[in-house]
Design a protein around this nucleic acid. Structure first.
Length: 212
DNA sequence: AGCTAGATCGGCT
DNA sequence: GCCGATCTAGCTG
């Protein structure tokens, strides 16, 4: 471990985003990658502005073996990006309104992905406010986070490129809480939603459907 | 070709 | 806490 408390391969990934080290990091199962992404920075530079968040809430979806995954019944036109290589974005439309962003992980063809559900704004707050049309809860919830970052379903199939869309290692949270995933009706016994403990408020654990 | 549940959000009671 | 908005992907007929 380095003085910063991170393995060396993560420090290298920080210097060269989406190089082979990051590929190895994302090449693991979604269940491994999801909690490890907490504390990382997710950043987009779109429409001439950069927006960044520190990730505080994610969920793991394990592909064709996971009844709650969109990939459970195989590849479709919508889910095709999930079957691509790690680092690809899978963005889907939820309830006809909201775009939700996933980062594909694991070996090609396994359709594993990590849903980005929440973060803390670090950069580009003005752009986020403009995109969201409000100032509260800018990046809380998958639909809100995607909107604040300027991402929509048109970005499904694009990938983390170290330019427009960037993933940077960050200090992991002191502790991580695992709960059932939100809003699903299958495999509710799997504790595959991960949150930074210090970011949890009362609403997070009592208010959302799908939580225990 | 039609039907409907859904990895949500925000406003209202 | 509850409910309506909004609309498409994927399934049934």
């Amino acid at each position: 471990m380095t003085p910063a408390g991170k393995p060396l391969y993560l420090m290298r990934a920080m210097l060269r985003p989406m190089d082979s080290e990051l590929r190895i990091f994302l090449g693991r199962t979604a269940l491994e990658v999801a909690p490890d992404l907490l504390g990382w920075t997710f950043s987009t530079t779109l429409d001439g502005t950069t927006a960044s968040v520190r990730l505080t809430e994610v969920e793991a979806y394990m592909g064709e073996d996971d009844p709650a995954s969109h990939a459970y019944r195989g590849m479709t036109a919508r889910t095709e990006p999930m079957f691509r290589e790690a680092g690809t974005l899978y963005v889907y439309l939820s309830y006809g309104i909201h775009s939700c962003v996933n980062i594909v992980t694991g070996p090609v063809g396994t359709a594993q992905a990590v849903l980005l559900r929440g973060g803390i704004p670090l950069e580009g707050v003005d752009a986020m406010v403009k995109r969201r049309g409000r100032e509260a809860n800018l990046t809380r919830g998958p639909g809100n986070l995607a909107k604040a970052m300027g991402l929509s379903t048109t970005h499904s199939g694009t990938s983390i490129d170290g330019e427009r869309i960037i993933l940077l290692p960050g200090a992991p949270p002191a502790s991580v809480v695992a709960t059932p995933r939100v809003g699903i009706s299958a495999a509710t016994d799997r504790l595959w939603r991960f949150m930074a403990a210090e970011d949890i408020t009362a609403n997070d654990i009592s208010d959302r459907k799908g939580t225990a």
